[in-house]
Design a protein around this nucleic acid. Structure first.
Lengths: 251, 251
DNA sequence: CGGGCTCTTGATACGCCTCAATGCCCGTGG
DNA sequence: CCACGGGCATTGAGGCGTATCAAGAGCCCG
């Protein structure tokens, strides 16, 4: 869920297996469970691959044979209904590990919204790795738990929040993630379109757009460009995200 | 998420630590990662406890010191907004393991909607157990992944499904879970109230009630009692749950 | 047989969706 | 350099689905 790719996007050279030590994902991914001395073991079972923007590399319902670790770029993860409605369940950035489903088919589709570099692991190869590095399994459990917490937060958003609260929550989360990545400025850069934001928040593109316009008119944000948003009032954002601003005093 | 407690509820005698082998959760929980010969090790670190209906045993935001394994009854897991709106993120039944959050505070509240029997593990004690039984950690990762898949499915429901589809999905899921527990009848028993169903589906109690009434009028279900629902047309249920019944031909 | 609870049903309001048009940005080619 | 076109975003008008507010019905239990 943490998409920390630098902007503007520069050409990223494909990472060879032997380059695990200099990988951008090295320190923010589960890979950090493996000591530098054993990195060649990891590199031996990881196949690097490049994914174009718009290309899907995991498809819902298809046999789940591989796992992926993103080393550059961002993907959207989504589920679809037969009539085409879709729900984005999350965005996967650098360091994100994908394909954890125990089931034999993938539960969601993953599509690149920026050019992606990733490492592919086959199921049996990952298994041997897990057997040799118990710490790796611990790290996977940790990340799964963190994603579970994020999923519950998203359920609260989708089930109970208003459009205003959803958009504010989205901006607050994006800003918090940017901070984690070392970017403490008040301007956030969005790799996704309005449509993708809408599909993530359970809204329509028009509602997202109208809500952002309203925030701008209220002086809380500004929109320097299509993919940039400047937060002018951070504390307002967090209170709006949870509805505290409209909540009348509750005794 | 699997609540398989028999109805009507009979008095369940508190399970002493040494009784792990005859525990109802023994074979459907992570406990099955521990061989029968080592059960005394498990029993030694598990503190059995009884929870009354309506009592909470995990509170959102409180320090996360313990883990729980439910051996009888059902709990609702929910998050709340400052103004009182709440979203139930899941129901935890027999065999469900709770408290997996890596963070130092709980991410949700757990409240018994039926009388509950559970085993409590302190954080350090679970850690030693995990170190001694690597298989247990594998099982925890499996269950976390399964919950993640369920959470994504619920996000699709909350973000993109209509009230009709939500209620149909809920009934379909409940029926599937009952089947897993050996109950293959077409009547499902609900341990939760209409309000709780509404808070789980992101709806109001009135909408849930109206939708069920409509399904009854259409001859798809019948409502023998307050907490029982008979599915008269299972295939209709699954198509309605995904919107296939209203989806016009998409070329 | 009443009291309190949950559930059901009805009337109305409102937030978001839908449909449709316009505007903006940017790459392309004359 | 500017006209053109395509994609994406914004804005507007109107409709629909679900929420809200308000009774009334059914059920359980004393």
């Amino acid at each position: 869920m943490n998409s920390c790719s630098p902007r503007p996007i520069v050409v990223v050279k494909s990472r060879l297996p032997s380059h695990c030590e200099e990988c951008d994902a090295r320190h923010r991914s589960v890979c950090n469970a493996i000591g530098t001395g054993d990195l060649d073991r990891l590199a031996a079972v990881a196949t690097p691959r490049h994914i174009e923007k718009g290309e899907t590399f995991i498809e819902e319902g298809q046999p789940a044979g591989d796992f992926f670790n993103i080393t550059a770029g961002t993907a959207k993860l989504y589920k679809m209904l037969p009539d085409g409605r879709q729900q984005i369940t999350g965005f996967a950035g650098v360091g994100h590990f994908l394909g954890l489903a125990v089931s034999d088919t993938y539960a969601f589709t993953a599509e690149a919204i920026e050019p992606i570099e990733l490492c592919r692991f086959s199921r049996p190869k990952l298994r041997t790795l897990l057997d040799d590095f118990p710490l790796l399994e611990k790290r996977l459990l940790e990340t799964a738990c963190n994603e579970l917490v994020a999923a519950q937060e998203q359920m609260l958003l989708l089930g109970r929040k208003t459009a205003r609260e959803r958009v504010a929550s989205f901006l607050a989360t994006r800003r918090a993630e940017a901070s984690l990545c070392g970017n403490h400025g008040s301007t956030i850069t969005l790799p996704m379109t309005r449509t993708e934001i809408a599909d993530y928040l359970g809204l329509t593109i028009e509602t997202v757009s109208r809500t952002l316009t309203k925030f701008k008119q209220e002086g809380k944000i500004s929109l320097p460009s299509r993919d940039e948003i400047t937060i002018k009032d951070p504390s307002w954002l967090t209170t709006t995200a949870t509805g505290e601003d409209t909540a009348s005093a509750f005794i």
